[in-house]
Simulated scan of single mutants.
Amino acid sequence: MKVVTFGEIMLRLSTPGFSRFVQASTFEVTFGGGEANVAVSLANYGLESYFVTKLPKHEIGQAAVNHLRRFGVRTDFIVRGGDRIGIYFLETGASQRPSKVIYDRAHAAITTLREGEVDWEQVLEGARWFHWTGITPALGESVQEELRRALEVARRLGVKVSADLNYRAKLWSVEEAQRVMRSLMEYVDVCIGNEEDAEKSLGIKPKGVDVEAGKLEEAAYRELAQELKRTFGFEAVAITLRESYSASVNGWSALMVDDRDCREGYRSRRYEIQLVDRVGGGDAFAGGLIYGLLTKGDTREALEFAVAASCLKQTIPGDFNLVSAGEVEKLAQGTGSGRVER
């Protein structure tokens, strides 16, 4: 099965261990980005996974391409050009100290995309699924226009579309996000997000939700998912539920409302995670949900797969979820005790 994602991949520079930026004398180097992370997950599960972006022709751009290829992602449609690859710096938090991200992504190659550089008819020919996140249109008008072109072709070809709302305050304002994102929702079949994304990106505020309290009111999230579905006509809405006790321990589950097995709203199994690296956790969820919806007959099973996949990712350093479908199934159907496998 062919799946396609579109967005920016960045160079990630992380402080070693739990060091602070002001302590670091070296950085650990890898690559990551919302849609690229999803593409890697889908490739690991055995799907024909393509990632579309624009990267410089120089060696760092090539290193990003090589990194994707290493994990089985098809890079046939990556456009080469522009002067630089975006960078983000990560300081991993612990206990009551939160993680921090600093972006250096202005004028990245993807922002120079122009009409005609990507042949979306060719890219999406034979594809079953197209995925994007709210990070991509936040990169500027030229990227918004390219995304809309992709979505129009996907609709014409009958390709299912998912969007992870992923609001990023460091990239655009609430007003601009809502103006752009609400106009793009007509192309979306499956919407993924959390309570902040729904409010900041789409202007729909959940009632009775207090994220900082450490407790989740399931009924409030169920109502939020149903309101999103009614307002925009989505086939399915998945809301991730993170209970942030500290930067080291989180509760993790999700709730979905759809037209099939989750009409009244279905909440998944809940995991308590000892965090290693939560960056990319939402992308791992999106990748797991796409795989589940493509391969499983019951959408509740698809949601359980997605939550288990994301749980495992948050125990792995780096942006990518480097697990197999079998490992995810084992957690989804087992105890998650973490005993040594011999």
Rank of each mutant, 00 (worst) to 15 (best):
E141R: 15
R339P: 00
E272K: 14
P206D: 02
F320I: 03
G334L: 10
G140S: 13
T75R: 05
R269E: 11
R168P: 03
V3S: 06
G7T: 12
D277Y: 08
G33W: 09
A43K: 13
E59W: 11
A169T: 05
V143E: 09
E175L: 08
V188K: 00
A225T: 02
G280W: 00
R155P: 02
A213D: 10
V118W: 05
F305Y: 14
D189T: 09
R84M: 09
Q226G: 04
Y291Q: 10
M185R: 02
T92M: 11
Q96I: 14
I239G: 00
Q333H: 08
S173Y: 07
G208V: 01
G282T: 02
K2N: 05
A63H: 03
A220G: 10
G203W: 09
V323H: 01
S253Q: 01
L228A: 00
V159M: 03
R267T: 04
E145V: 14
E264S: 13
A127D: 06
D319W: 12
L255T: 02
R128Q: 14
L228N: 04
R84D: 07
S244N: 13
E59M: 11
N44C: 10
V323L: 03
F51I: 07
N44L: 04
A198K: 06
A306N: 12
A219Y: 03
L147V: 15
R222W: 02
E35K: 09
L113M: 11
L165R: 03
K160E: 10
L113I: 15
L13N: 00
A302E: 12
Q62R: 08
E146G: 13
E59D: 08
G251N: 11
I290N: 10
L202I: 07
F51R: 06
T53I: 05
E141Q: 15
E35P: 10
